[in-house]
């Protein structure tokens, strides 16, 4: 307990007992800053992927599109028949026929603006929104097959699921990256502690000679590294938050980049990351140093 107290109580001696090694100090500080930066970014990416997956899932789960592709002469009658079937189907909250301008807008990314779709054999598209009970997909398909053979019901399952899977994969990779970064932090602290203890053998000998316990010696080393890592990770988290602020607005971005940001309680990660660094470096350095000191007779 006394050694834990030594970590937090300002003590000029505990601070000074381990000589400052500029290189190790800087290495610990900047590595922690870099790792914290990566963690905050991975967290933001994971949350963005999670939001994206949920948004796709929610917005497309209750909607479907009915495509009516028939020869031009039959197109109007087939469309009317399809609309009639939909109006008689339970579980459908609303449906509407897409206007020519809306269909033109859908084609714009591929053919550019002002496509003369009136001259093209374009199918008719009907957007369907189901109510909270949902409709019988199999039954609707059977009725459409009987009454409107040219109609194809697309409930978006085919392309919605891979997109959601991809988004969740990105979410998982984000958290995996965070785990790996924390693993690297543990490895780094173990190596730094080992290097510091072996390059300060004389300091350890003197401290033991004057009656210092292993806990006291470990505390002197741990204190040095834990605070360096804490301040470094604070800097990294701060730079990451600034970078997130400075990312271009959503309208200027594409695909997965949309929404890489922190929202609401997610900002608490800017505090959680440095604190996690402190706890992790404290525990790693303490366990490593006590184990090394035990082996030094």
């Amino acid at each position: 307990m006394a050694s834990v107290k030594n970590i937090f109580i300002p003590d000029r001696y505990v601070n000074q007992i381990v000589p400052t090694n500029g290189f190790t100090t800087l290495l610990t500080f900047f590595t922690s800053a870099s790792m914290a930066f990566l963690i905050v970014f991975s967290v933001a990416m994971s949350f963005a992927a999670d939001r994206l997956a949920r948004s796709w899932s929610d917005s497309l789960a209750n909607s479907a599109t009915l495509r009516v592709s028939a020869p031009t002469a039959d197109l109007d009658s087939q469309t009317d028949a399809a609309l009639h079937v939909l109006s008689k189907t339970k579980g459908i909250a609303s449906f509407r026929l897409l206007k020519a301008e809306e269909q033109q807008a859908l084609l714009e990314p591929w053919f550019g603006p002002k496509v003369p779709i009136n001259n093209l054999p374009m199918p008719r598209l009907i957007s369907i929104e189901e109510d909270e009970n949902g409709y019988d997909r199999v039954g609707l398909r059977l009725r459409l097959a009987a009454e409107v053979p040219s109609a194809v019901l697309d409930d978006h399952t085919r392309w919605r699921e891979p997109l959601i899977k991809a988004a969740y994969r990105i979410w998982f990779l984000g958290w995996l990256s965070i785990g790996l970064v924390f693993f690297i932090v543990i490895a780094m602290m173990t190596l730094v502690t080992r290097a510091a203890l072996s390059s300060n053998r004389k300091v350890i000998e003197v401290l033991r000679l004057v009656g210092a316990t292993d806990q006291y010696i470990a505390a002197a080393f741990v204190r040095k590294f834990a605070f360096r890592a804490f301040f470094g990770s604070m800097l990294g988290a701060f730079i990451a938050s600034m970078t997130l602020f400075l990312l271009p607005p959503e309208a200027d971005q594409n695909a997965i980049l949309t929404g890489i940001r922190l929202e609401g309680l997610e900002w608490s990660w800017l505090i959680v990351v440095p604190l996690s660094f402190f706890v992790l470096t404290f525990l790693t350095a303490r366990i490593s140093s006590l184990s090394i000191l035990k082996s030094l007779t």
Partner: peptide, 23 residues
Amino acid sequence: CQFLDHLNVADNIALPIMVSARN
């Protein structure tokens, strides 16, 4: 002798007191 070369003489002499949990 075995001193901590980065601490001055007074601090080196006071070292046993400091490590003995007296603040």
